[in-house]
């Protein structure tokens, strides 16, 4: 045991966390090997020193959480409630890898079209861009862990609201990138937006069908049909067919019909999926 001891005033200052860094380190080093001074500290220190209440810890944690930079401040500015922001953040967290992968694949398709690696390279973009929002909806469901999905389906949170937030996420992450990549593809400038109506039709079909069944099934079915359509354009050597008025009108009609079915389903909401 050391013959030297920390005096009471220094111990009091140490207990009150009033010592300078160097002095505090010196006292701590001594306390580690001196039973007498540790005993003195225990007598001098108020009961609250050295313990932290649960509420104090949580207040500190909450402050840290709330002061952390938000990843979605723009949602707040758009009027999305704090609670819905939590849901959107959760969807984004689960689907981040999907979003990155889909954007990369689309970028590659756009790059191939831009470099004109083949005469039909533009069709790759026409094939992918309309499908991404629809596939994204399916991905938001499939990437949710099964048990979390069970908690979602047994919670009072509206399943229709959850479906629409997932759709909003898919559209918001897929559409801007598709428009951007479409704009750089050589050829008709309308190509940048020509895929929007086919995309709306594909997405609306998946959403309407999702009120009956797992969204993956209609997403795959719609993808297969769209693949057939694009392949037939390729075989008939009409790569710009997506720009043609009949394609746009049919897409609009299909989107309107599927949207009507979806609206009616959301009003009834008695399907097994819901």
């Amino acid at each position: 045991m050391s013959p030297w001891h920390v005096n009471d005033s220094t111990l009091q200052a140490y207990a009150a966390q009033e010592l300078a860094t160097l002095e505090r380190a010196s006292v701590e080093a001594h306390l580690m090997r001196c039973d007498a001074c540790r005993g003195g500290l225990a007598r001098l220190a108020p009961a609250s020193v050295g313990t932290v209440s649960f509420d104090a810890v949580f207040d500190r944690v909450q402050t840290r959480i709330e002061s952390a930079p938000r990843t979605t401040p723009w949602l707040r500015r758009m009027g999305v409630t704090d609670a819905d922001t939590v849901v959107v953040r959760q969807i984004g967290r689960q689907c981040l890898q999907w979003t990155i992968a889909a954007t990369l694949i689309l970028a590659l398709a756009a790059l191939a079209a831009t470099l004109n690696v083949r005469d039909s390279a533009q069709l790759g973009f026409v094939l992918l861009a309309p499908l991404l929002p629809a596939l994204g909806v399916a991905a938001t469901y499939r990437l949710t862990p099964t048990s979390t999905a069970a908690l979602e389906s047994t919670s009072p949170y509206s399943p229709a609201r959850l479906l629409l937030w997932r759709t909003a996420y898919s559209v918001a992450t897929a559409v801007p990138a598709s428009v951007l990549f479409g704009a750089v593809i050589p050829g008709d400038p309308w190509m940048a937006v020509a895929w929007l109506l086919p995309s709306a039709a594909c997405t609306a079909i998946v959403l309407a069908a999702a009120t009956w069944t797992d969204p993956l099934r209609p997403a795959l079915a719609v993808s297969a049909v769209w693949l057939g359509v694009v392949t037939s354009w390729h075989l008939r050597d009409v790569p710009d067919a997506v720009l043609a008025p009949p394609t746009q009108l049919v897409s609009l009609a299909v989107a309107a019909a599927a949207g009507t079915v979806l609206a009616r389903r959301l009003l009834v909401l008695r399907s097994p999926a819901f």
């Binding site: 944690v61 939590v86 967290r93 862990p145 048990s147 979390t148 069970a150 908690l151 919670s155 949170y157």
Partner: peptide, 26 residues
């Protein structure tokens, strides 16, 4: 449920906050 598979990358607080929102703690 018998097994709860948590979403990746979440904190305990974040997970509970998500479930609390689902339970209408707005």
């Amino acid at each position: 449920p018998q097994e709860v598979e948590f979403p990746s990358g979440m904190t305990a607080f974040g997970f509970l906050e998500y479930i609390a929102v689902l339970k209408e703690w707005n």
